[in-house]
Amino acid sequence: MRKIFELSPQNLEKLSALRKQYPEQKAIVLPLLWMVQNQLSYLSEEGMQFIATELDVPYMHVYSVASFYTMFIFEQPKKHLIEVCRTLSCALNGADDVKAYFDDKCDDDVEVIEVECLGACGGAPMCAVDGKYKESLDDAKLEAILKELKC
């Protein structure tokens, strides 16, 4: 038997609030994708099927939409995620070194990826650790991040 996805009670409540906020139900595909991803830490087939059923849209619509956006993931992620900005302002300020540093020091619990400009160019070089922005990175800050992640 396939696992059936269910929303947590809090999320169920949020869902009924969401339904009232948009003129058409289809509009909440994105909020629901977020909800499922936050609950499961990734988007499972069952989770997307749940959205399709709830909103009465085809499953492939949900998947097609989800696959368009880079922040959605379809497999169980590692424990931590470090997104190193690679775009110009950060590159000019040593993004490569930041990426190399994490690649070198992080253990298998941490996924280190490059992402495009995170809108923090004034704090270049920067990265996001589990979604939290860490800007104006220097040696001390990099070390602090590692400590935080206990690598």
């Binding site: 492939m60 619509h61 998947y63 097609s64 696959s67 368009f68 880079t70």
Partner: peptide
């Protein structure tokens, strides 16, 4: 019948 969609970007 909604079988085919474009995925990815």
């Amino acid at each position: 019948s909604n079988e085919l969609f474009i995925i990815g970007r």
